[in-house]
């Protein structure tokens, strides 16, 4: 796979073609203007070279028409670039419904991956071709960034929040995986391989390895082990809010404002339970910061989500329009 000296990255995802199309447009614009300027400079420098020592140039002070011309034309070209770039960004931002979800946790200096059926990987990622894959990513320590050049996708991985990255692989093969955000001594060692496989091969791979519990099952077990279930009951009589069918809904907060129950809010409620308390409840919940790992947090979230997903396609979690690629911090709207 990694032979020769390529001059252009492979196009191995559905997005790659779109990104490369803008790239070629930009290269053409850059080449045109660079050659234009360089050509004019060289031509003028030769044509108007100084012929005798005391020669001076002509007094030309400017031309409004020309100034407008070279203000307006670059402006319109850049607006084309803006609209095109923003459109591709939008397309690459929203994971489609039904995308296959995979949990990714970055830490110095490795990528830990868990598939929804429980299969784990480190510094590798196996995905099927032809199916949208959505990575839900968190960090245990510092900033990282998950980058697959041949797919043209990248997203920062930030401690304390979840960012989402999605792609649809189109060609089976092995591709580079890089950490793109500097994260310390072995930053350049935080690399791996993404393997895209035909769906049948992927199924074989999934069943071939020793799978752990699925994140949902692990989360359910944790939910009991941490005695969350003593307050969060399956009816509304508990000391904490009932979690059934809660995910994706908006809830009123004590002290005003509302918040959408998404991955970020559940995470915050576990590690900083007092930050945003649902209206009608006492701030009794202790913090679990330091008691659960990032991976366990993702498992708990997967479990809470599963309580709302009966009859829904997995991965059809509502995306807040303000946070398409990432579900960063919950948006608190004033009443």
């Amino acid at each position: 796979m990694f032979t020769n000296f390529p001059f252009f990255p492979q196009q191995a995802s559905a997005q790659a073609g779109q990104v490369d199309a803008i790239y070629f447009f930009m290269v053409a614009v850059t080449a045109f203007f660079s050659i234009l300027i360089a050509g004019l400079v060289v031509y003028f420098a030769f044509k108007y070279r100084r012929r005798h020592r005391d020669e001076i140039g002509h007094a030309i002070h400017g031309s409004l028409a020309l100034e407008l011309l070279w203000t307006v034309i670059p402006f319109f070209i850049t607006m084309v670039m803006f609209v095109w770039g923003a459109k591709v960004f939008f397309d690459m931002y929203r994971p489609p419904a039904g995308a296959m979800e995979i949990h990714v946790v970055g830490k110095q200096w490795m990528w830990k991956v868990q598939h929804m059926d429980g299969r784990r990987e480190i510094n590798e990622l196996h995905v099927p071709v032809g199916r949208p894959v959505k990575l839900i990513m968190g960090s245990e320590d510092v900033l990282h960034s998950y980058y697959i050049p041949d797919f043209r996708v990248k997203a920062d991985v930030i401690p304390g929040r979840y960012n989402v990255l999605w792609f649809t692989a189109t060609r089976p093969g092995n591709y580079h995986l890089f950490c793109a955000e500097y994260c310390g001594t072995k930053h350049s060692g935080m690399i791996g391989t993404v393997t895209a496989m035909e769906p049948a091969d992927f199924q074989a791979w999934l069943s071939g390895g020793r799978a752990d519990e699925s994140p949902v099952a692990a989360g359910e077990k944790l939910f009991a082990d941490l005695t969350c279930n003593t307050c969060h009951l399956t009816d509304t009589q508990g000391r904490g809010p009932m979690l059934t069918n809660l995910f994706g809904k908006q809830v009123e907060l004590q002290g005003g404002g509302t918040v959408t129950v998404d991955e970020a809010y559940i995470r915050e409620s576990i590690v900083l339970p007092q930050a945003k308390v649902v209206a009608g409840f006492q701030p009794l919940m202790p913090t679990f910061q330091g008691l659960v790992t990032e991976e366990q947090l993702l498992q708990l979230i997967a479990y809470v989500r599963s309580l709302s997903q009966q009859g829904e396609a997995p991965g059809a979690a509502p995306q807040s329009p303000t946070m398409p690629q990432s579900s960063s911090r919950p948006v608190v709207e004033k009443k």
Binding site: I22, V29, I37, T78, Y147, R152, V153, A155, E181
Partner: peptide, 28 residues
């Protein structure tokens, strides 16, 4: 003259990075 040529290329390649869809790939 060197400045003119290099700054032109430098400025125009900045446009690549301001295109959001392209910057996803090129960032860092």
């Amino acid at each position: 003259f060197g400045f003119l040529g290099l700054f032109t290329i430098g400025g125009l390649t900045g446009l690549f990075l301001a295109a959001m869809g392209l910057d996803i790939h090129m960032h860092d």
